[in-house]
Design a protein around this nucleic acid. Structure first.
Lengths: 212, 212
DNA sequence: GTCTATACACAGATAGAC
DNA sequence: GTCTATCTGTGTATAGAC
């Protein structure tokens, strides 16, 4: 029963149930809208028992944000390791990032929207971590521009923001029981980021169907 | 002093101060994170006086959501009225929408993120209104596809979601005191939605710098 | 139309037995 | 490690004077 040589995946520890339940509730109701009563209920324990495992409600949010941003950093590093050109690296960044965010939706959505609920010290630290991740992507985009692989008429800053726009909002409408898997959504969004939504004239007569 | 023949724009009514303050606080702290004390403080009155002007805290959120979605519907209708082709209509939809959302950031951000805090009846009504607005855009995108103006290898559903991805997330990083105006951000995002971020080979040799 | 005072529920967190 | 019981602050909302 309380033998700690559990076979893997059979039983989750109480603290893991709390963490996963917290991510789900925070995403669904927001941090302020989630009570410690709800947190304990979803973990199957009483309110008071919660404090044996975690310091408090805010600690749960802080830990969630930090670990999630570390996961993102790991994803980005893997793209840097595997990409053989700036554009391929960027493709790996985008597709692996959105796939990870959608698969681990509760934690990523919470991290993206509830940073404001952290105390100011912790908020500053978490924002710095997030900005560091964004800076990595911006670096790749800058390299791709210099290599002539990305358009140069838009500043790297806004090419970066636009990419995160395109990827991040998916977390609000993604349906795990829907018709597309996270990987497929990443593919579609990357296609649009690369070529846009407008149908280009086939390479028959002119090079591009330019407008205006 | 309490003469109600005020010249326009000199003094806002108490209920307007409450509504505007509520939008700002809801965006910054979330609905659950905003107290009636804070709402009354930002309007310059005591807590109790709040209830002379509004039914309660949730009424403020509900009214904000409904009126904001009506504003969006009006913006979309103006695009339908003014556009002379599906692609021009879509451009007007996208650029006017993002401009409106960024100029009226507090209300739009709140509507986009706090619908979950409404009671279930009101939430259903508000979501229906939102879905109706999205359906209008999807209709335009479908027409543009049929006219051969938008790529057809991605379903209209996802071309629509991708467009809203690209536009909506801007509300989280837009800085009113930043270097770009809402109109310019709309222009950049529309450029990317149309042509993508990748630099196309100039129409010299081949039609497109195709990859993979 | 605004105020002071307050009702009453519920929040996060703790004490101490088992 | 979990429980019952409880503390204390704060939440939304109301009563009633001015």
């Amino acid at each position: 029963m309380n033998d700690d040589s559990n076979p893997p995946e059979l039983a989750k520890s109480t603290v893991d149930r709390i963490r996963e339940g917290a991510a789900e509730l925070f995403r669904e109701r927001g941090y302020s809208g989630t009570t410690t009563r709800a947190l304990s209920a979803v973990a199957g324990i009483e309110k008071a028992s919660l404090y044996h495992h975690v310091g408090g409600k805010e600690d749960l949010l802080y830990e969630l944000c930090v670990t999630t941003l570390e996961d993102v950093a790991t994803v980005f590093q893997s793209a840097l390791d595997d990409g053989t050109s700036p554009i391929e690296t960027l493709e790996l960044v985008a597709r692996r990032y959105v796939e990870r965010a959608l698969v681990d939706r509760d934690r990523h959505a919470t991290m993206l929207t509830e940073i404001r609920s952290l105390s100011s010290d912790r908020r500053a630290e978490v924002i710095a971590r997030r900005d560091q991740n964004v800076a990595v992507v911006r670096g790749v985009i800058g390299q791709a521009q210099e290599a002539g692989l990305l358009r140069a008429d838009i500043d790297a800053k806004y090419l970066t923001l636009a990419l995160f726009n395109l990827l991040n909002w998916s977390i609000f409408w993604f349906d795990p029981s829907g018709d597309l898997e996270p990987k497929e959504i990443g593919q579609i969004l990357w296609m649009i980021y690369v070529d846009g939504a407008v149908l280009k004239a086939p390479p028959a007569r002119k090079g591009r169907g330019s407008r205006a």
